[in-house]
Design a protein around this nucleic acid. Sequence first.
DNA 1: CGCAAACCTTTGACATTTCAAATGTCGCTC
DNA 2: GAGCGACATTTGAAATGTCAAAGGTTTGCG
Lengths: 171, 171
Amino acid sequence: MAEPESATVDLEIIVQGAQEGKKLELRLWLRMLSTTKLISQEIRRRLRNEFGATLPQFDLMAQLYREREGLRLGELSKRTMVTNGNVTGLVERLESDGLVLRVTPDGDRRVTVAKLTAKGETLFSAMAAAHEGWLRDMMADVDPAIVSELWRDIGAVKSSVSNHLSGADFD
Amino acid sequence: MAEPESATVDLEIIVQGAQEGKKLELRLWLRMLSTTKLISQEIRRRLRNEFGATLPQFDLMAQLYREREGLRLGELSKRTMVTNGNVTGLVERLESDGLVLRVTPDGDRRVTVAKLTAKGETLFSAMAAAHEGWLRDMMADVDPAIVSELWRDIGAVKSSVSNHLSGADFD
DNA sequence: CGCAAACCTTTGACATTTCAAATGTCGCTC
DNA sequence: GAGCGACATTTGAAATGTCAAAGGTTTGCG
């Protein structure tokens, strides 16, 4: 089914109203997904090359950096949107690298609290600065006004999605 | 040189500054990421519950559905943004489920072409219809005009990101 | 007190992810 | 027609991801 060189591309797509009508949401989703993948891959590559860290580790440390007292694993799971079982292994690896510490509080022995070590804080703050710069660079060609608008409108999407989940809660 | 032409310049600066200033790109990224994760998880859950399929499998089948003649694994890798090694295992599992067929063309024995089976086409077309509906539902509270706008503006983001990668090409 | 329900984390089985290195084929040159 | 370089896929190690089931701990109620 090789396509002949004739202009089979529909001209009417150019017209606003003739957007093929349906599937607007589907198209938005596909574009969001591919864009997010693209950015993730770039950040992953740089985190690896420049800091020897992975993206999920970075995400987890970001949460701990905001809460210097540490967080329970369940809290970490919610905030990073990573499953419980996954957090266990993630924290294990970070602990063996000396970046995170695990403590069981006196009051409740069911609980494990994870907390950044000094080494972890130092490393994270370097990574965070670089990370922010990478994003600014990658989005350099986008008008700041558009960036703001996107931030707002994607918020609307997130909120709509949250209200139509089959069985969970939200932000 | 620094001649204030009009008051609008100052206003723009004020507006930007009032946006909590820095890190606009970072905040956009975090919101895109969490929203994408949220939607992905929902789709994943439904694909699993209703069709016993995974999201990467769905993505891969979507590409094959568009190209009934089949695609080489390398092409699949590019289109799904999944690494080569990953495609191998993905196709392996789909083949053992009877959804995909692997063929080596006569001309070039380096190549493997994957192609949907009849069973695969039937299953995918059911999944695709459901998938589209899920997205429409999830985004039901978002004004269609905003959806269009987002589609366009995220395109701009994607294009900017593509032009600032450290070592790869693009869409 | 005693025990069942609720809570938090871990474990186990699999699927997916990345990267780098290995394998196999083809095309082209000498 | 032997071999080198380019191309296509597979393999292997390590990390991440899901889900469901199992482990301890606490709480609350009879």
